[in-house]
């Protein structure tokens, strides 16, 4: 398995995680493990998924967002998505994600 170095920023209990250029099933597993590991080790209460670099996303991305949303709510935390491009916005809308996640 190749490791893809991704950027993230921890500020207190907030984690801003930069989503990759293409969000699909191939990157899902490693990415979820990494986010979950960071959330646990830094006791994160506010997870922010930054989509500024994301050009492609399929339903695997929906699963990632819903899964992380469950994890955050379980720990009494919150989740938000920021900097959605036109395509990611279309995918969010098609899946009704705006109803379950805060988008800034």
């Amino acid at each position: 398995m190749e490791r893809i170095a991704r950027r993230y920023k921890v500020d207190g209990t907030q984690l801003v995680y930069e989503m990759p250029k293409e969000v699909d099933h191939h990157v899902a597993k490693d990415m979820c493990q990494e986010i979950d590991m960071l959330v646990e080790s830094y006791r994160i209460k506010e997870l922010v998924l930054d989509f500024s670099q994301t050009e492609f996303m399929d339903s695997s991305g929906i699963g990632i967002v819903i899964g992380r949303s469950k994890t955050m709510h379980f720990h009494g935390g919150s989740i938000a998505a920021v900097n959605l491009g036109k395509r990611v916005d279309t995918i969010f809308k098609s899946a009704g994600l705006y109803k379950i996640i805060q988008v800034k």
């Binding site: 929906i62 699963g63 899946a95």
Partner: peptide, 14 residues
């Protein structure tokens, strides 16, 4: 358990 959304066919149709 693998974080699959179950939206695959819905997206193909959409």
């Amino acid at each position: 358990e693998q974080d699959r959304s179950g939206m695959g066919f819905a997206f193909m149709e959409a």
